[in-house]
């Protein structure tokens, strides 16, 4: 098994951007060190040869959990909008959107 490259500042800057977090230079430095240590520890797992082992995402084998197509109660709009930072015309107001949904 090939070892993945060690985690560096550029990786942390990249994932911070993907996760919509902004980091100061100091934070970037500190987080890089901390995350690198965790990833370093995870190398025992990364190095394992488990090619023929199936992944487990659900610990228990449940299947076909379905709901009948019957309408149920919705929330009151006032209740929903009361929690919002900003609203207008019964809708959630957000700053302008630059760029489209992918």
């Amino acid at each position: 098994m090939t070892d993945p490259a060690p985690l560096g500042r550029a990786d942390v800057a990249h994932v911070a951007a993907l996760a919509r977090l902004s980091l100061t230079d100091d934070e970037l430095e500190r987080f890089t060190g901390q995350l690198a240590r965790v990833i370093e520890h995870a190398r025992d797992v990364a190095a394992l040869d488990v090619g023929d082992v199936l992944p487990t995402s659900h610990a228990l084998p449940i299947r076909n959990v379905l709901r009948p197509d019957e309408p149920g109660p919705c929330l009151e709009r006032d209740v929903v909008l009361a929690q919002a930072p900003e609203t207008e015309d019964g809708r959630f107001k957000v700053p302008r959107i630059v760029g489209d949904a992918p």
Binding site: D89, R91, F92, K93, V94, R96, I97, D100
Partner: peptide
């Protein structure tokens, strides 16, 4: 979309 001042979501 690109010239909007803000957006409203339903």
């Amino acid at each position: 979309i690109h010239a909007a001042d803000y957006s409203l979501v339903d």
